[in-house]
């Protein structure tokens, strides 16, 4: 028995046997990909149990790269600080006037809302989380954040940056979560365009800007129009800012996001 097994192993050493082994494995993995094994419960349970382990392991292995990038970013940031500080000093006076105007407008809106007996449906609790990593190849963009099941995070919760919507929670692990970004090709967001609330769907295109599809009033949309969530379908609350129309070609309306995802360090997870 032992001899037979050894004979088998040694026979694999010939180039033809190895090629047969490679070809068999190629066929096996091709069938695995085509059979949509990924949709099965077994696949989900394997992924759930192993993804956090593999992520933690890879984080340790890739920590030198992480340190180098963090160091480089710090140097760049410090060089920008001086320049920004100078600019901010110049803007301080005019900003203070703008700030007064904003507060005044906010107070006015609150007063009108009270008079019209409306309620503010856009107030939700949120949790702040740190961005641990950004995982992406050309089309599958996602981030990992430091909040998980222990923080009551659930799949589908919207994720916001400082300026607007960033994405939504996809996988929830024990202490971390994976969020799909708006640029991910599987991202489909119901949006409202301009003050006239033209309804459409925004889909991610990987490294390219997201595009608008199924716009009913396509001819009325123009470059610079603001895009926000429409709230339709109940996936996201309405009026969350996303971006603005950056270009309109024959076939495509492209969106420039307000949030620079590359520079995100912290995000807010809305409890919606």
């Amino acid at each position: 028995m032992r001899n037979n097994r050894n004979t088998f192993f040694y026979s694999l050493s010939s180039k033809s046997r190895k090629l047969i082994l490679i070809t068999s494995l190629l066929v096996f993995f091709l069938i695995l990909v085509l059979s949509r094994f990924d949709k099965s419960n077994l696949s989900n349970s394997i992924r759930a149990s192993s993804s956090e382990l593999s992520f933690n392991l890879s984080s340790i292995i890739a920590s030198p790269v992480k340190l180098m990038i963090a160091g480089y970013n710090k140097i760049i940031d410090i060089s920008r600080v001086y320049q920004e500080n100078e600019e901010l000093r110049e803007l301080q006076l005019s900003e203070s006037i703008s700030f007064q105007e904003i507060i005044e407008m906010k107070l006015k809106i609150e007063e009108y809302e009270r008079l019209l007996n409306t309620f503010n449906d856009n107030e939700f609790n949120f949790k702040t989380a740190r961005v641990m990593s950004k995982i992406s190849n050309n089309y599958l963009n996602s981030i990992t954040v430091t909040s998980g099941k222990i923080n009551d995070i659930k799949p589908g919760m919207p994720i916001l940056g400082l300026k607007g919507l960033v994405g939504f929670v996809d996988q929830v692990r024990k202490s971390t979560s994976v969020a799909i970004l708006l640029s991910n090709i599987s991202s489909r967001i119901p949006v409202s365009i301009s003050n006239h609330s033209y309804q459409a769907i925004m889909i991610g295109q990987g490294f390219k800007n997201p595009k608008i599809v199924f716009a009913k009033d396509r001819d009325s949309i123009s470059v610079g129009d603001t895009i926000s969530t429409s709230g339709r379908g109940g996936i996201f609350p309405p009026f969350i800012l996303i971006g603005k129309v950056s270009s309109i070609n024959d076939n495509e309306i492209e969106v420039e996001l307000f949030e620079n995802i590359e520079k995100l360090t912290h995000v807010r997870i809305l409890e919606y």
């Binding site: 993995f29 695995l32 696949s43 993804s51 593999s54």
Partner: peptide, 18 residues
């Protein structure tokens, strides 16, 4: 597992190059 690809996709890619 790490990047969330379909199971077998990366192995197929690597073995193809091999």
């Amino acid at each position: 597992t790490l990047l969330g690809f379909q199971f077998g996709f990366s192995s197929l890619f690597f073995l193809f190059f091999f």
